[in-house]
Structures are given as structure tokens and as C-alpha cells.
């Protein structure tokens, strides 16, 4: 295995685990709040979620888990010798950047509310309210993308497995 591929494999594992871990935390806190009205109790749990800016948002948690699964899928493929696993790393990075972008833009919207429109409902708002795992984990993906963006057209791969149906068509 080439050194670059190995790096991508470990990056996929690290990112995958992080996204799944943060996603699960977000899912548990979000669903417990939505279903039972229970917030994270005053304990170490709340300290951790507070320090890591993890919101109680169940569906966003599911999205984080999904991105984590894409990375882990890529890790598994590369580990088992399938170089195509790089594709999963690439798409995982793209997905994490998309969702980081969504929350950055949401934060920008809130900033406009506070500083431009002086909206009273945002008086208690601070910029840290909009920091969330999607954003800082996305920064990690951004760095990876900048480092490897030219590597994602890969030599030495067959585009289609001859035993498989073409992925571009659906035939019944």
C-alpha cells in the first residue's frame, strides 16, 4: 500500500470514529430531549457536551453518524486492499464540507440578525451558540481536502468491474 493511501486510510478511521461518536452523543441528547423532555443532567455529561458544543439535535446526529459510516466504509475498503475505498474518503470529505457549510451559513444568518437587524429575540446569542461538531470536524476535512485534492483522480484503477453491472444504469 502506498504511503498516501495509508494516510487516507487512517484519516478515514479517525474521522469515521469521531463523526460516529459525536453523532451518537448528539442523537442521544437530542432524542432524550425531544421524546422525554430530559436535558443532559448536571453532570460530567453536560460538561462534555458543553465543552464540545454538542447540541441536542437528533436528526443532525443521524447525519453525523451517516458521514462517519461513509468514512468507515472507505477505511474498510482500503484496509481490505480495495483501492476504490478512496472514493468513500473523498465523498465523506465532501459531505462533511457540505454540512459544515450549512451551519456556517446558518451562523452567518444569526450574525445578521444580531448586528444588522438588532433582533431582540437574539439578545442572548453569542457566536459560540452556533459552533457545533459539524463545523470543527469539517475543518479537519477541509485540511484533508486541501492536502489530497489532486490525489482523488487515481492511477492504477479499473473504473468498472467487468463482473458487475455498470453503475450508471439501472436495468430490470
Amino acid at each position: 500500500m502506498k504511503r498516501g493511501t495509508r494516510q487516507k486510510m487512517w484519516f478515514a478511521l479517525l474521522s469515521g470514529c469521531s463523526y460516529i461518536l459525536f453523532g451518537l452523543t448528539q442523537l442521544i441528547t437530542g432524542s432524550s430531549k425531544a421524546l422525554f423532555g430530559i436535558s443532559v443532567p448536571h453532570s460530567i455529561g453536560k460538561v462534555i457536551t458543553g465543552m464540545l458544543f454538542i447540541p441536542a439535535d437528533a436528526i443532525a446526529g443521524l447525519v453525523l453518524i451517516l458521514i462517519g459510516c461513509v468514512f468507515i466504509y472507505g477505511f474498510e475498503e482500503i484496509r481490505s486492499g480495495k483501492y476504490e475505498g478512496i472514493a468513500y474518503v473523498y465523498v465523506g470529505i465532501l459531505l462533511s464540507l457540505i454540512f459544515a457549510g450549512i451551519y456556517v451559513l446558518s451562523g452567518f444568518g444569526n450574525t445578521l440578525e444580531v448586528y444588522l437587524l438588532k433582533n431582540e429575540t437574539f439578545t442572548d446569542w453569542s457566536i459560540t451558540d452556533d459552533i457545533r461538531p459539524e463545523i470543527y470536524l469539517g475543518l479537519l476535512s477541509l485540511l484533508a481536502y486541501l492536502k489530497w485534492k489532486d490525489d482523488f483522480d487515481i492511477d492504477g484503477m479499473k473504473p468498472v468491474d467487468h463482473d458487475q453491472k455498470d453503475t450508471d444504469t439501472s436495468v430490470h
Binding site: 461513509v70 478512496i86 473523498y90 465523498v91 482523488f152 483522480d153 479499473k158 453503475t167
Partner: peptide, 20 residues
């Protein structure tokens, strides 16, 4: 020939994955 997997192919491999 052994050829490059284009970005389009790469994205499709994941986005049209049976499970994902």
C-alpha cells in the same frame, strides 16, 4: 487499460451505493 477513476465515477460509487 488500467485507467484513472474519474471524480464522477468515484462520487457515483458512493452516492449510488446500495446501503448509503
Amino acid at each position: 487499460s488500467d485507467v484513472k477513476l474519474s471524480r464522477s465515477d468515484m462520487i457515483d460509487r458512493v452516492l449510488t451505493n446500495k446501503y448509503l
